Simulated scan of single mutants.
Amino acid sequence: MSCFNTTHITNPSTFILMGIPGLEATHVWISIPFCIMYIIAILGNLTILFIVKTEPRLHQPMYYFLCMLAVTDLVLSTTTLPKTLTIFWFSSRSINFGACLTQMFFLHCFSVMESGILVAMAFDRFVAICDPLRHSTILSNPILLRFGLAVVLRGTMLILPYPLLARQWPYCRTNIIPHTHCEHMAVVKLACADIRISNYYSLSVALSVMCLDLFLIAVSYTQILRAIFRLPTNDARLKTFGTCSSHLSVILAFHVPRLFSFLTHRFGINVPLHFYVLIANVYLLVPPMLNPIIYGVRTTQIRDRLLRLFTHKWTKSFVLVLKLLD
């Protein structure tokens, strides 16, 4: 690797991803929980999509938003983890410059999109609890389509400058990225130019998206809590709040690792590099893994449909075995 440290590159054809610096000897062991989480994320989110598609009762705004979240999670985890596993298993560290910028775009774009979907889901819960009689009117299919389009356009327009700016910088120091994937700042820090534009822009995007989305979610849930406390009985309050518990759990699963990763990256001066890289990977893997589990366990309609599906499969298999024995 020393040859890469001394190579002067103006326009690199490839970058070298180091994986988790300092933990190279344990890459294979680290890959085991990473791979398990990825498999759970893929199977869980595909199951959510299948159940919502095949169950007419779930063709409602809440579950449409859940499908958007599942698709976003699938793309977000698949953008980084396959390459991470090739680094861990086969030491395949090189990545094409264009592929690196593409990975950077999809990684940050779908992170912003997921945050926007959580805001839309909070608005859905607000309308369902505070104005239930007009829920189907306010969140009609055309409105849902506009919500989805707005989420996609916001993510695309905010993140598109990331690779465009990164592409114009000269890279003459090194092409080694001390990370498992092409995270924006990890890449542009390699440039031998004044990257303050990229630095300030990424910071403003991160702060504006996080602060705005958390503020909108907080406003929605403030109104929801006010409506809940007006209900006459404790049972009614608990039942109504229970409809929000899945969404609140998903918000925590997404924003807590994200906020921790952001703070350690920006202000964690004494944080070891390997710890920061691990946290960045956890942020990309844990929410896609937990989201389908949370909704599968805590949402009655999805849980019941899943149980019926497995019961039907086991019954058919049992009958087939009995026929073969006869």
Rank of each mutant, 00 (worst) to 15 (best):
P132S: 10
S202D: 07
R226D: 10
N175P: 02
L263Q: 05
I279S: 05
I87R: 10
L278G: 06
I294G: 10
L101H: 14
V75G: 12
V209G: 04
V205K: 00
L252Y: 12
I32C: 07
I143R: 15
L139N: 09
V127A: 08
S94L: 03
V112Y: 09
H27K: 11
F123M: 02
L118D: 11
H179E: 15
Q301H: 07
L216E: 02
F262K: 06
Q60N: 08
P163R: 10
Q168W: 10
L74Q: 06
M18A: 14
F106G: 05
G19W: 00
S115M: 05
M18T: 12
H255F: 12
P12N: 09
N5F: 06
I195G: 05
F147V: 15
N291K: 13
Y64L: 08
T80G: 06
I251F: 08
M37I: 04
I197P: 02
D124K: 02
C100W: 01
H135E: 15
T300K: 14
L133F: 14
I228H: 14
F229V: 03
R308C: 02
K323W: 09
L216I: 04
I176A: 12
L325T: 11
T137P: 08
G148Q: 05
D131G: 02
L145H: 13
A41M: 05
I87Y: 03
W169F: 15
I293F: 07
Y221D: 04
M210R: 05
T222Y: 06
L66H: 07
T86G: 08
I117H: 12
L324A: 09
P287S: 06
A128H: 15
N234P: 00
T79G: 05
L325E: 09
Y283W: 07
P288E: 01
A99C: 11
G148V: 03
F97R: 15
L216C: 09
F275V: 11
M121H: 01
Q103T: 01
W29I: 09
V127E: 03
L133E: 15
S246K: 07
C182N: 07
K323V: 03
K189R: 13
A128G: 11
I40T: 02
I195A: 08
V286N: 03
F97S: 13
M113Q: 13
G268P: 00
A253M: 13
L231M: 09
I16W: 06
C211Y: 06
C109G: 02
C35I: 09
L149Q: 12
M68F: 10
N175R: 15
V28F: 00
C211M: 11
R308Y: 01
W169A: 08
H265R: 14
I269T: 11
P170F: 00
M113V: 12
A70V: 06
L76K: 11
V282L: 11
L107W: 00
L164D: 07
M104Y: 09
L133K: 14
L285S: 08
A253S: 15
Y276S: 09
K313F: 07
L263K: 04
H27L: 11
F267P: 03
T311A: 11
W29V: 10
D235F: 07
V282N: 01
V119A: 07
S2D: 13
F123A: 05
I228A: 12
I95W: 01
S317Q: 14
V271Y: 04
R226C: 10
V321R: 15
L290D: 01
C109W: 13
L307E: 00
N270L: 09
R134A: 11
L273I: 10
F65A: 06
L101T: 04
R237T: 00
L69T: 10
M18W: 03
F229H: 13
F110Q: 01
L49A: 09
